[in-house]
Amino acid sequence: MSGQTIVKIQKEIFDPVQECLPLTQDRKDLGALVTFTGLCRDEGGVLQSLEIEHYPGMAEEEIGRIITEARRRWPIEDVVVIHRFGMITPGEPIVLVAATGLHRAEAFEATNFLMDFLKTEAPFWKKQHLHVDGAGGWVSAKQEDEAAAQKWLQTQSPS
């Protein structure tokens, strides 16, 4: 069975639970639903808001390519990716990645893979706005995020 893919790039806040409900509705064949929700952290109370810039058009296409690669590697069913842009305040969700499968291994691994590549390949950039006047700036890419994505490239597809 070929599953459905839902990609949303939006400014609006979302409810991760509501977004995942359709994935398991009227399905009796599934064995796993794995979801990851990335939240805006207050960085110990100093962060006022997070501003996310994206590259419209490429963002959708790049996420599509990442999902295609995940589907090539694991027999997952449905996939949902939601990524917000604009101003986000601490406590709000930023990103949702969810995958269903007949077994948990593929759903877990595919979700992890999708998240690692979303962070390093999807064209989104975070800018921090701090409570201190005028403080903040663009978030630098982390070496460990790059390393997390690179490790998948050293593992072959299971098929």
Binding site: I52, K119, F124, W125
Partner: peptide, 10 residues
């Protein structure tokens, strides 16, 4: 063509 820093989404 587009130019940008390393991505920091997710």
């Amino acid at each position: 063509v587009a130019f940008f820093p390393p991505m920091t989404g997710g």
